[in-house]
Design a protein around this nucleic acid. Structure first.
Lengths: 348, 348
DNA sequence: GTGAAAGCGCTAACAG
DNA sequence: CTGTTAGCGCTTTCAC
């Protein structure tokens, strides 16, 4: 049996409560007893029992991380490790532990969240994604359980939600405008499933930029990630065979763009000479593609770090309204974009 | 205040202990009361308190995952997400939760492990790396705490350690032999820090294959990952400028190989025409490099899955000796290797 | 089959 | 400043 507070108390000749106070470093204990107790703890190799503490305290110093589905392919996307790195970094500073969801289906994950919350397993939750019509957020709200969303709540009205997000609408708009500025008029867009709020925002930004430029939106230029995964190269072949093939393309994220670059290279379509590409995220390997990709750095680490910071605030002061945060993004220009009107020039 | 077992007991007109038995689905409770109690639980929305259970049970149904340093760059390596996916998948099946280490330095991580163990926070631990002279493993052994290592213990004598590993020695040997078979005689090797056991094994396999083929080992052909990170391209420039430049190269892992491919492409060195490359891991994006890389698939998911499986066995039967497992690897031939003696032929 | 009661290890009034 | 006591919510003997 592990050594408990009582053993320490006995050895130090004090009451268990005194030991407890020493652990909490209560100012109402004399230096002398503190030293005595600490020596006893040292000698016995005492470590407080986590569950006993949590039970008495009603606080666990643990936060739950809810992933879209840790056990599916999406976890392969470097976004998740990186955002967890950010969370982890702040969590360590604040003395919080990290508990991971493991469910695979939406329903499994929902049940896990219920268990975390009702079972008092965690003090707060960070949601790593925001999905349209998700059950988890309303549940958390109704339970008045502290949580922070990475992304943006779908329903604008829900004002009480604290979230950390990029301005994805603006990022997509800027990126489109950038291509426009380079002289491109036929810009395709490969978006994510419109289930995810980020995909909705990207698409809106893209469309708005075109609208402002008075360029009609062509349905055949808009492809969903889903189609791509399903049909392999088919969607791209079709896209590039339109009556007016696009000269530029906006990719959902860097990973998908890697795939795109490969397809184009196999088809003999040169990037950026034949088509310019820009994508989102700027994960570590983005600069290693050939050619290195132009992409929007969304500061993934920062998203995680800030989310954890806000969550701690919420936990510490449950009454206080914690305001959401927008993490700035930044276009990182590398070599997948080229001005259209000087396509002869070798170097951009 | 959350609804407790007492509330349920009151509503169902039974004793708390009976409710507890219903939760555990004890056979000594009549069907009738079970139904009655379950109805009460349903009506009140009862969920057992996790910490109270853990405290009374002395078991948490949680396992700790120890990463080299979740908050540093290494987590960007897709190996970690993927191995966690494997662990996660099995953990969900077995009803275990996942707790993540967050420390950054070796010492911080060690302290976290001590807390997890002594604080009774987890029932077992999976170590995601094996490092030479690591303090954690000896500690865990001495505490007789259930753990499984992903990788191989450095010290062969330590027989009592359960681990899940690839045969990295053989993988490296095979890979070298493969290049030899293709006619290469000048094969360079970029290894990881010899701190990590896997790097040691790779190097041994490489050297043994050369020895068997009676090819002398050249010091200038062996580069450490570390040098690469430090000097950027310098190490590669130097390598390719040797009196006899290598015609083939073995890369530490896919991510590093991405970088390598980029450097070569920038230097106008063609892969595989001028140099063949083979690496390890086969992460998801490996097939997206240009050219797609030849690499050893080590079944990362399987490593995690199996580790979790073994750990559960250990936890359930602490006395039983649980034998270690070697996960088979497989060379995945793509397009970064070419036979030397027919360098004219376009297709391999 | 079910209830009463002790206890898991710690904290937090309440005394003094 | 420190000790006594009750209790966090659950499990588990031991009775009946």
């Amino acid at each position: 049996m592990a050594v408990t507070i009582k053993d320490v108390a006995k050895l130090a000749n004090v009451a268990p409560s005194t030991v407890s106070r020493v652990i909490a470093n209560s100012p109402r204990i004399s230096e002398k007893t503190k030293v005595k107790v600490r020596e006893a703890m040292e000698k016995l190799g005492y470590h407080p029992n986590f569950h006993a503490r949590s039970l008495a305290n009603k606080s666990t110093n643990t936060i739950g991380i809810v992933m879209p589905s840790s056990a599916n392919k999406s976890f392969q996307n470097p976004f998740f490790p990186e955002v967890i790195r950010g969370i982890s970094s702040k969590a360590y500073q604040e003395n919080y532990g990290l508990y991971l969801s493991t469910g695979q289906t939406e329903e499994e994950i929902f049940q896990e969240v219920v268990h975390m919350v009702q079972g008092g397993r965690v003090d707060g939750i960070i949601l790593l994604y925001s999905r349209v019509n998700d059950k988890i957020m309303p549940y958390l709200q109704q339970q008045k359980f502290p949580f922070v969303l990475i992304g943006r709540p779908y329903n604008e009205e829900i004002h009480s939600i604290t979230y950390v997000n990029n301005d994805n609408y603006k990022a997509a708009k800027t990126v489109t405008e950038y291509l426009l500025l380079l002289g491109h008029r036929n810009i395709a867009f490969i978006g994510g499933e419109l289930d995810f709020v980020v995909a909705v925002d990207h698409k809106k930004g893209y469309e708005q930029a075109l609208k402002n430029a008075k360029i009609p939106i062509r349905e055949e230029y808009i492809i969903s990630h889903h189609e791509l995964e399903q049909g392999g190269e088919d969607a791209i072949i079709q896209l590039m065979s339109s009556s007016v093939p696009p000269t530029a393309l906006i990719g959902l994220d860097d990973i998908m763009t890697f795939g795109l670059l490969k397809m184009f290279s196999e088809m003999g379509i040169r990037v950026p000479d034949d088509i310019s590409i820009v994508s989102f995220n700027n994960v570590l390997i983005s600069e290693l593609s050939s050619p290195p990709m132009t992409t929007v750095d969304i500061n993934i680490f920062g998203l995680g770090f800030e989310a954890m910071k806000l969550l701690v605030e919420k936990i510490k002061e449950p009454t206080k309204e914690v305001k959401s945060v927008i993490i700035p993004h930044k276009l990182v220009k590398r070599q997948t974009c080229k001005a259209l009107n000087r396509s002869e020039k070798k170097d951009e």
